[in-house]
Design a protein around this nucleic acid. Structure first.
Lengths: 353, 353
DNA sequence: TTGAAAGCGTTACCAA
DNA sequence: TTGGTAACGCTTTCAA
């Protein structure tokens, strides 16, 4: 890389061996080497169990003792700088609450990746847009990026990451991103199942809740669209209903319910559904006689309510599966990005529809 | 450090200008410099808006253009290696579901720390014990560690982190850890409030649910202990009840409820409380007449159930507050670790008690 | 079996 | 105003 002609070095003034300006200084492998009376190379060999060289057992012990004594911990940055790559798999830190479904999946993924000797790092990128986030992530030189969250990566963002050495970029979202492996979590399917279920139950005037917060907007749009297309040509078009995740908002919506003339509602997910269902009941509406309510996500809590909440259950890929996908993509980055089909979704009819 | 006398370099074989063995190689500041026709130093100055030196506007533009064109992204590891420190604030990635309370707090914290120019990284440390985790974290050389999760840091772990350059280690847990700043989230207080509330409602034979999963064990033990001490000397001692977060487990517990002869239960938190309450109702018990049920955490969903769930609400420090604490600790590490008092907790009586 | 030294990408100092 | 260069901590090749 550096084609400098390397002129003869100027005489280096030997450092006057500072007494100890920063005594609580971080111990380095050189310190370990000094204490053990060996070279830095030997320290590295011993501590990394290098198999290419044979180090005598007494030496190994001395080195290990010294490292222990100093509380030596290798410097990840230096190591990866030298190695030219990291084992970091970066995930955007999820904003907003994380349900048991999602957190279980995340744990599985983490555990599986750890087993494959990757370091899982969740990076918080709160106010950032897709390309800014990609830049920030690229600074860490992750070997792979798994983008599950709110952030939508552009082709340009993917390019930034790839140029920064990411051997795998995997997105999960409604649409594939050019250059990245795509797990198509097509939330339209979820909306479609919900709407179809309501139609089956004889409902014709169907509302779809769209969360007021922007956070889950990505899913919300796709779910609404899915519901729309399922209903198309059958009956009056679905009615989008904006609602925030607060009691007041739910109560407000319930208060004007009769004027809307709807007999079925897909409430975005189980949590919104519970909130809305409660408000509707308090408003004197009967469920499911007057209004059928269905959520999504199949939360345990939905079964605890009365009436029991109908829901759309959908499959997440297992964490192990995704980890394997990551590992494969890392090892054979030449491969053209795969696309994994839309998630399977099924309506689970309980008492609320 | 290296006191080598620098003998004359052996003739460096000029790299035979490889055609392009790794063409998609990561662009470095040297590449930018070459393209812009300036030195690496100049690139650094421009890209970091160094104020100590004045660079002509045309040069600045050339450099920026070149960086843009190459898609140059600085290498965080190299930077921090050079700088001798990072701006990383490390949090253990939370395992298990994250309620809205906790996630709101986390977001606040992240946002506040970003504003203070820290990089927030959540590090997944699934199977690790306290000291192993500390070692793993130390490899990243974080400037601060905020340990909120399941992991309990030992004094030794704190030492490891400090020796690795962490200028602040902050723990939140039932007890302070030597050497670390402590946010004492004394969950005993939560248990005590719950028990006191049940006593006030005239209950005498009180059960306390302890989650079967090990995950929240830390909180569970403290909450149980708190309930115990609140009840002590008044009535029969509290009865610990093991229960998993599944419908079967709740049903099983409810089935043998009458044989337990309890008239009040603190169900660990709102989610366990909802589950248990539903099972008790299905078993034919009346709430609160036969059994008073109280949870903790004041989840919105608790208000949606009928009967409405009583709960213990407790304060989390605000994210801004904690961020400020981190920043202060980083800037004045000499300070002796502060301890911040136990969390305030209040019982909120609703219909279930 | 061990040691010396180069080099990873960056920044900061000093010289031009 | 700009450029050369050393140094950060680590691994690894080559030489002894």
């Amino acid at each position: 890389m550096s084609q400098s002609p390397k002129p003869p070095k100027p005489p280096k003034p030997p450092k006057p061996s500072l007494p100890a300006p920063t005594p609580p200084s971080v111990p380095t492998s050189a310190d370990v080497a000094r204490l053990a009376g060996v070279s830095r190379a030997t320290v590295s060999y011993v501590l990394n169990n290098a198999q290419a060289v044979r180090i005598s057992e007494p030496t190994r012990r001395r080195v290990r003792r010294a490292a222990e004594e100093l509380g030596y911990v290798p410097h990840a940055a230096a190591r990866s700088l030298r190695a030219g790559h990291t084992r970091i798999v970066l995930l955007p830190a999820s904003e907003g609450p994380v349900g048991p479904l999602h957190s279980g999946f995340l744990n599985e993924l983490q555990r599986a990746l750890s087993r494959l000797d990757y370091t899982v790092v969740q990076y918080g990128s709160l106010g950032l847009g897709g390309d800014e986030a990609a830049r920030a992530w690229a600074e860490l030189r992750p070997v792979a990026v798994v983008c599950l969250g709110r952030i939508t990566l552009s082709a340009h963002g993917v390019g930034t990451l790839r140029r920064a050495g990411a051997r795998a970029v995997i997105t999960m979202g409604p649409a594939p991103v050019p250059g990245a492996h795509a797990l198509i979590a097509d939330q339209a399917e979820v909306g479609a199942r919900a709407a179809a279920h309501l139609l089956e139950r004889g409902r014709r005037r169907i509302g779809v809740v769209v969360p007021a917060q922007e956070e889950p907007a990505l899913f919300a749009a796709a779910r609404l669209e899915g519901a729309r297309s399922a209903v198309r040509s059958a009956v009056p078009p679905v009615v989008p209903l904006t609602m925030a995740y607060t009691e007041e908002s739910a109560t407000g919506l319930a208060a004007r319910w009769r004027s809307l003339g709807l007999d079925g509602v897909f409430a975005y997910d189980d949590e919104y559904a519970m909130l809305l269902m409660r408000a509707l009941l308090d408003e004197g509406l009967r469920i499911p006689e007057d209004v059928a309510v269905i959520g999504a996500g199949d939360l345990l809590l939905g079964r605890l309510l009365r009436p029991r909440l109908s829901t759309v259950r959908f499959e997440m890929p297992t964490g192990d599966h995704l980890a394997e996908l990551v590992d494969r993509a890392v090892r054979e980055p030449a491969q053209t990005p795969d696309r994994h089909g839309p998630v399977a979704a099924t309506a689970v009819g309980r008492d609320s529809t």
